[in-house]
Design a protein around this nucleic acid. Structure first.
Length: 190
DNA sequence: TGCAGGATGTGA
DNA sequence: CACATCCTGCAA
């Protein structure tokens, strides 16, 4: 599957299909890459979705074209990184929850202030910090900007994907919208 | 090994 | 006032 095909999937399928793809950032200081190993989907009609009610200044990027990057601040101090799904005008996105670092590891260790490989990108706010992602990247697009998606080296099949409920929410807590690669040790929860 | 507590912008 | 989180410190 190529990037064009990936971004035509509905948001739930997109969240699953992104497993195994690599997230890459090219910045002044160097390049970062990690394999996407855990995602969550946030959909229309889903009370946990930031776009559940109205379009606001904060959630506007969720309504962008597929591949639009949505960065938001949470708990006043951390940031999370999403990729918008579905067509323009519909507020849906996939939250990237964990990566298996493959490139730029020394830079990540400095940014995260830890030497532990497993602790670099094993959470949505952690991977944001490891890559140095910030609010200026809100409304970027993975098609056109320095934050991009690279197709999988090893194809992830359905049998390799575990589906569970999402982490850290109470509204919509029963929806099975969290996906991760079976047996991968870089996910956010053991 | 587990959990309580704190930091604090945004929108209901 | 609840929240798509993480880290520290203290108890068991």
């Amino acid at each position: 599957m190529n990037l064009d095909n990936l971004l035509t999937l509905d948001t739930l399928q997109l969240a699953k299909a992104m497993l195994g793809w690599r997230l890459r950032l090219d910045s002044e200081e160097g390049s970062y890459e990690g394999i996407i190993v855990e995602t969550e989907a946030y959909l229309q009609g889903d009370p946990a979705c930031h776009a559940y009610r109205t379009k606001t200044k904060r959630n506007a990027a969720m309504f962008g074209k597929p591949g639009t990057i949505y960065v938001y601040q949470i708990y006043g101090m951390h940031y999370c990184f999403n990729i918008s799904g579905n067509e323009e005008g519909i507020g849906e996105a996939v939250l990237i929850r964990a990566l298996e670092p493959t490139l730029g590891i020394e830079l990540m260790k400095m940014r995260r202030n830890t030497a532990s490989l497993k602790n670099l990108c094993s959470g949505p706010a952690k991977l944001v910090q490891a890559f140095g992602i910030h609010m200026d990247m809100n409304f970027w697009n993975v098609r056109t900007d320095a934050l991009s998606l690279i197709p999988p080296q090893n194809l992830i099949v359905d049998n390799d994907i575990i589906t569970t409920t999402r982490i850290g929410i109470t509204q919509g807590a029963d929806f099975p919208y969290r996906f991760y690669i079976k047996g991968n040790s870089f996910i956010s929860k053991k």
